[in-house]
Simulated scan of single mutants.
Amino acid sequence: MDSITKYYQIIYPILKEYADLPYRYGEVKRHLIVSEDKLHYLFMTWGWENRRRLHGCIVHLEIVGDKIWIHEDGLEDGIARDLVNAGIPKSQIVLGFHPPEVRPHTEFAVN
């Protein structure tokens, strides 16, 4: 099994579970968007809450080679924790939302 298929089988169910949770109130929807090549994963919300338009990316993951880059992580406990709990080693996860000079000080991959 190639790394893209392996990662898809782990990432998709995790993000799908978040996307299926109902939003607390308002007419806000959650969506999981996966690129056709299964290299990009976007967990998005959009809709209306108290007459205010909401639209945003909660999580953006990208598979680059044999690593998962986390470009955006707006989850309360962090998507990295979910990935590690699902069996992805920290050495295969890059916290891309941190500047390159900060990454060596995390427990995760640098690039």
Rank of each mutant, 00 (worst) to 15 (best):
Ile58Trp: 02
Ala86Cys: 09
His98Asn: 12
Gly78Trp: 01
His31Tyr: 14
Tyr7Leu: 04
Ser35His: 03
Ile10Tyr: 03
Leu39Cys: 04
Ser91Ile: 08
Glu76Ser: 15
Asn50Asp: 14
Tyr8Met: 00
Gly65Lys: 08
Leu95Met: 11
Leu61Lys: 02
Val110Gln: 11
Trp48Gln: 07
Asp37Ala: 02
His31Ala: 12
Ile63Pro: 00
Leu42Trp: 03
Val110Met: 09
Val28Cys: 08
Arg30Gly: 04
Asp77Arg: 12
Leu95His: 07
Phe43Arg: 04
Asp37Cys: 00
His98Tyr: 12
Tyr23Trp: 12
Pro13Asp: 07
Pro100Gly: 05
Arg51Val: 12
Val59Glu: 00
Gln92Arg: 13
Gly56Lys: 11
Gln92Leu: 10
Arg24Gly: 03
Ile68Lys: 01
Asp37Val: 06
Tyr7Glu: 00
Ile79Gln: 00
Asp82Met: 01
Lys16Trp: 04
Ile33Cys: 07
Arg30Met: 04
Trp69Asn: 11
Tyr23Glu: 05
Ile14Val: 05
Gly87Glu: 05
Gly47Lys: 05
Leu95Val: 11
Gly78His: 01
Glu49Pro: 08
Tyr18Gly: 00
Asn85Gln: 13
Glu36Thr: 04
Asn50Arg: 15
Lys38His: 08
Lys38Thr: 00
Pro89Asn: 11
Ser91Thr: 15
Leu61Gln: 03
His98Glu: 09
His40Thr: 01
Gly26Trp: 05
Lys29Phe: 06
Lys90Tyr: 12
His55Thr: 13
His60Trp: 15
Pro99Gly: 04
Glu72Lys: 10
Val34Lys: 02
Leu54Trp: 15
His71Lys: 02
Phe97His: 09
Gln92His: 15
Arg52Leu: 12
His31Ser: 15
Trp69Phe: 15
Tyr23Met: 03
Val64Gly: 14
Trp69Asp: 03
Lys29Ser: 14
Leu15Asn: 08
Ile11Gln: 00
Ser35Gly: 04
Ile79Ser: 07
Gly96Lys: 06
Ala86Asp: 05
Arg81His: 08
Asp73Cys: 11
Ile63Trp: 02
Ile14Glu: 02
Glu107Cys: 07
His31Cys: 09
Glu36His: 10
Gly26Thr: 04
Asn111Glu: 15
Lys67Ser: 10
Asn111Lys: 14
Val34Tyr: 00
Val84Leu: 10
Leu42Met: 00
Arg53Gly: 08
Lys6Glu: 03
Leu39Glu: 06
Val64Pro: 09
Val102Trp: 15
Leu15Val: 04
Phe43Val: 01
Ala86Glu: 02
Lys6Asn: 07
Leu83Phe: 10
Leu95Ala: 11
Gly74Lys: 06
Thr45Asp: 05
Val28Gly: 09
Gly96Leu: 03
Ile33Glu: 14
Trp48Ile: 09
Val94Gln: 08
Glu49Arg: 09
Arg24Gln: 09
Ala109Ile: 14
Val28Met: 05
Gly56Asp: 06
Ile88His: 06
Phe108Trp: 10
Gln92Met: 11
Tyr7Asp: 03
Tyr41Gly: 01
Glu107Lys: 13
Leu83Thr: 02
His60Arg: 09
Gly96Tyr: 07
Glu76Thr: 14
Gln9Leu: 06
Tyr8Glu: 01
Asn85Met: 13
Tyr7Phe: 10
Arg81Met: 10
Lys6Ile: 07
Tyr25Trp: 13
Glu72Tyr: 02
His98Lys: 10
Val84His: 03
Asn85Val: 04
Phe108Asn: 01
Ile79Pro: 06
Ile70Gly: 06
Ile10Asn: 01
Asn50Glu: 15
Gly74Ala: 01
Lys16Arg: 09
Glu27Thr: 10
Gly78Val: 08
Gly87Cys: 06
